[in-house]
């Protein structure tokens, strides 16, 4: 099963987004990572790499959802170092994208590409 990693500048935001995505994500593995480790707002690459490797439990790949600027860069750096076969950063809003990805990952035979596409569809959704 494709795994999902939620990266936010805030650890609590990442946890909260995971909480919401889990409601519809069944037993999909979702890792939440955020903050700088010393209680500050921000992101660093090492915890993201660890989360990506943890989310790749079954080796079927990982889709990463990110919030702002440095989360994107640190996620890209983390993926360059992570010991996984396939992992991508989705160009999607972090909350809606995580929810879409969680649902897509529950589909039989879901692939990293399919989960990423589902996450990225969230970018075009109008709320009103």
């Amino acid at each position: 099963m494709v795994g999902i990693v939620v990266v936010s500048h805030s650890e609590r935001a990442a946890e909260g987004i995971r909480e919401i995505a889990r409601e519809m994500g069944g037993d999909v593995r979702i890792e939440a990572v955020g903050g700088t480790g010393d209680g500050q707002i921000g992101t660093t690459p090492e915890p993201i790499r660890e989360a990506v490797e943890a989310a790749d439990g079954s080796g079927e790949g990982v889709v990463v959802l990110v919030d702002l600027g440095s989360a994107v860069m640190n996620a890209e750096l983390a993926l360059e170092e992570a010991a996984v076969d396939e992992a991508v950063v989705a160009d999607a809003p972090v909350l809606e994208g995580a929810l879409n990805a969680a649902v897509a990952a529950t589909a039989p035979n879901a692939t990293v590409e399919a989960v990423r596409e589902a996450a990225e569809e969230a970018a075009g959704v109008s709320k009103l």
């Binding site: 500050q40 992101t43 690459p45 440095s70 860069m73 640190n74």
Partner: peptide, 15 residues
């Protein structure tokens, strides 16, 4: 720098 700076400056300077 990558592991300690945090924020965008870490990956930009360090990477």
């Amino acid at each position: 720098l990558v592991s300690e700076v945090g924020g965008a400056a870490g990956p930009l300077y360090g990477g």
